[in-house]
Amino acid sequence: MFTPTPRVQVPRSATRGEVIEIKTLIEHPMETGLRLDSNGEVIPRKIINEFICRYNGEVVFRTDLHEAVAANPFISFSLRATTSGRLDFIWNEDFGAVYALNHTLLVD
């Protein structure tokens, strides 16, 4: 059974007001529901349908993903560092599975 593996690249620290770039990736086939197996049966859709980033609990960036996002979805985005705290990265999969990582950001 394949287990999706999330990864993030975030700076350890930032100065107040600085814009930091965050790179995220989750290893996932993003099965579109458009493909057929060797018996000609449709392989059911199973994709990561949402990605959320929280900063000290507040949603600061979010993405709805559809079938056309490539396998192993890579998303890079930028946040404004305001206070030290916790960043949560959450990937929601079809049928309710959730994958998550967190990171502590130091801001001075």
Binding site: V19, T32, C53, Y55, E58, V60, F61, T63, E67, A68, V69, A70, P73, F74, I75, S76, F77, S78, L79, R80, T82
Partner: peptide
Amino acid sequence: GRSEPAVSTRIR
């Protein structure tokens, strides 16, 4: 005030 309007990904 939180996220910048810039994003990168890969699409099909």
